[in-house]
Simulated scan of single mutants.
Amino acid sequence: MEELLQLKQFLQQGKIDEALVIVDELEEMSLGDKVNKIDSYGVILLIHLIKQNAENRSTRSWQLSIENAVREINKINKRRKASGYYISKAELLDILEDGYEIAIKKAASEAFEGRYEAEELATMVDKEGILSQAIELIEQG
């Protein structure tokens, strides 16, 4: 809120360069918020894809979580007024890769009733295949 008041003040004073700096900061904060939300939903997506891959099965609950995560990622990433997306496919893949380690740890506590440690579960699944499947689901979403 403080940034908006300062922005208004700069515009009223005709300090365009200072106002543009604040606009850049606001854009960066907004994008950072979108990245954080996409990361959270991406981890949820990966957890369920990992469990599906490891256990070679699915449940309605897992499928609903996958569908919801994909829907939320696309909703957050879609530019409403301008066409296109905030975050590119390559950036999405980077976000998913960053979240993969926490996803494997969380999936290990759930898959096979928590019998395997994250490192063991990681050897049972195809990381690249799961990341590719996640991107594909997001693109189709």
Rank of each mutant, 00 (worst) to 15 (best):
E2R: 13
E3W: 01
Q6G: 03
K8D: 08
K8E: 07
Q9K: 11
Q12M: 13
Q13N: 13
Q13P: 02
K15S: 08
E18I: 04
E18V: 02
V21M: 03
E25Y: 00
M29I: 03
S30N: 02
G32P: 03
G32Q: 07
G32R: 07
K37E: 06
I38M: 03
I38F: 04
I38Q: 09
Y41K: 04
V43T: 12
V43I: 11
L45V: 07
I47V: 14
H48D: 15
I50A: 06
E55C: 03
R57H: 14
T59H: 12
L64V: 09
S65L: 11
S65V: 06
S65G: 08
I66C: 09
E67A: 08
N68S: 10
A69M: 12
R71I: 00
E72I: 06
I73M: 09
K75R: 05
I76L: 05
K81T: 01
A82L: 06
A82I: 02
G84R: 03
I87F: 02
I87E: 05
S88L: 00
L93W: 01
L93Y: 08
D94I: 04
I95Y: 08
L96Q: 12
D98H: 12
Y100F: 15
E101H: 09
A103W: 06
K105E: 15
A108H: 10
Y116K: 11
E117R: 15
A118P: 15
E119C: 05
E119H: 15
A122K: 15
M124A: 13
L131P: 13
L131T: 07
Q133C: 06
A134N: 14
I135M: 12
I135F: 10
I135Y: 11
I138S: 07
